[in-house]
Design a protein around this nucleic acid. Sequence first.
DNA 1: ATTGCTGAATGG
Length: 406
Amino acid sequence: MSDPGNCTASLLKEEDATAGRPDNRQLCEENKDNEDFSDISDSELQQLQDTAEKGDRSLPEIKNKRTEDGTSLESIDVNAESGEDLYQDGTRERDILRRKRKQEVGTPLEKYSLRYLTVTDICSQVWCEQQMVYKMELPALVEKSAAMSEGSSIHLARELEVHDIVSVTTKTREDSWAIKCLNILAMIPVLQSGGRVREFPIFAELDGLYVVGVIDELGYSSKGELELRELKTRASPTLPGSSQKRSHEMQVFLYKLIFDRMVSGDLQPDVIMQHLKLRPEQELGSQVKEHAITSDLNVSTFRDVLELTCLNLTYSDLPMIDSLKLEYCFQGDGSLLGCEEVTFQKEKVLEQLTFNLSYWKGLREVQGVDIEDAWKCRMCEYSSICEWRAQKTRSIALRTLNKRLK
DNA sequence: ATTGCTGAATGG
């Protein structure tokens, strides 16, 4: 490994990833015969009304068996093969934490005990907010699709082209955040020398909320502009529809928003630690320290690494992101389907963000999709229990009924 | 808090 700038952070956990995983296949099959909100037959009308009055909503019982030894192994990167096992594990972990600590009152953020949101959380909110909320409440219902696994491995393959991978065991939450910092510290010089990096960790406070993410790729364009590239692999050889593109655009917009903050010296160690409830004096784990030493960094507590990172970001004179590109590739043969530059309109992005965050702050109720986007429900794991959908269906049914009575 | 706080992104 000649270039220390080529390491990224990741995490490994629990060996028996598949144990206790509920089989969702049947549920997914069932969802196939769900129709749009419209097109309701006469016989269904009465049924719908009955159901509506009863308020029937049978939630399937979800069990989360899990080994309780709790030993966690974190690493500075994935030893390949990450795909499914890690995903399933992570999901169950989040599931347990959220459901255990679920409170009946407070803002959604408090209800799900979230100290931060991820960029993906906000993007799935753009796709369907109601679905995103169900994912928080009942994550076990989602099964990773083949397209998603394929996407993950393509991304991993690309990452391996530019990164060496080193695993590191961690003991504390501070250790995992220290790894993010170490990776940032390693990537800064690569960017300064005009190089290319993948999986750049980002985090910043947006509108009072902490948002965390990972930038797929950063590099320089032929014009010498700092360019963000987000690879989207597609199961079919087609470009995404407008609805899906909207969510992709939001993703890169948020990346830029956060990255720009980071390089303009907006990051304050104390604010970060307060927000994320990290202990500044926490001594770093031996493996983390070891890695820091090989990178010639003299650090012993979490505060040391975080402060060093904030200072580096502030004074390394990295540019803000000039260009945002969405790159679509076909999973089948790897062919490029299209690459488009999206224009960052700050006002619009902030407006969208404010709307999304207002849900988390408890300023408004959850919203599902509009009728014209009801096609999304056909591939949604939660359509059979969806309150929003039921309500929409009901209101349309009643409207149809009224028309007929006229 | 009884023991208590998350790899993010993957695609539609």
